[in-house]
Design a protein around this nucleic acid. Structure first.
Length: 215
DNA sequence: CAGGCGATCACCT
DNA sequence: GGTGATCGCCTGT
């Protein structure tokens, strides 16, 4: 199994005893349109640091939400208290409660005034799997982070993370040079969005066993 | 200020 | 494949 230990004071990981340097992803990565960011994120490593421990996983599935013209986007009808963070600069977490009991993690994209974001839909677990298994009450690796609600539970992300800097101390992303083959699909559970439901704005690592739903 | 509902998940058949 | 859980947010009165 691929195990990673992250040392926060250096930007490197140790993978199966071999040291590999990684780059922390900076704000400019997220200051681009959400479609570009959503396509570039699969393969990158998401890291969560909490008092209980450090968890990380490789992003294997994302969706782009394009704001004002996108009927599936929460921000399509303008600014509300909930969606306020989307109207700021890219690179901040948008975390909301869905179906009364689960949370979804998005990263705001593009510049201030363009309320776009990328939904993180699934991870391949890398480090901190024991902690994630404890939080999720399952020991099945392919079921640990295979959905937006699941990965938030696994990483300990609650609504206190809304507005959190995605290049910060509690939450950040790394690039270890992985450049997987990406395929597209329609976004999930947005049947209400009319024509926008047909757009192929979901991005997955081709062949990954860790995605949420096939499509 | 009340009512409807959702960018999901787990469990059932 | 079908459905119930569960609650904050948004909309329309």
């Amino acid at each position: 199994m691929f195990t990673v230990t992250l040392f926060l004071w250096y930007n490197h990981v140790i993978s199966d005893g071999e040291e590999t340097f990684v780059e922390r992803i900076a704000k400019d990565f997220f200051m681009r349109d959400a479609l570009t960011v959503a396509r570039d994120l699969p393969g990158k490593i998401l890291v969560s640091v909490t008092p209980d421990g450090i968890c990380s996983g490789r992003i294997v599935e994302t969706e782009a939400y394009m704001g004002l013209g996108d009927r599936a986007a929460h921000s399509c009808r303008g600014k509300t208290p909930r969606t306020e963070v989307l109207f700021g600069d890219g690179g901040y977490a948008y975390v909301y409660l869905i179906y009364g009991m689960y949370r979804c993690l998005n990263i705001s994209a593009n510049v201030s005034g363009k309320p776009e974001c990328v939904l993180i839909r699934a991870l391949r677990p890398l480090s901190g799997t024991e902690l994630m298994m404890k939080r999720r009450k399952t020991d099945m690796l392919t079921n640990l982070c295979s959905g937006p609600g699941k990965l938030c539970a696994a990483l300990g992300i609650d609504r206190g993370y809304n507005g959190e800097d995605i290049c910060g101390d509690r939450l950040f992303l790394c690039d270890d040079g992985c450049s997987p083959v990406i395929r597209t699909a329609k976004r999930v559970n947005i049947d209400y969005a009319g024509e926008a439901a047909e757009y192929e704005w979901r991005f997955l690592i081709d062949g990954s066993k860790f995605v949420s739903v096939k499509g």
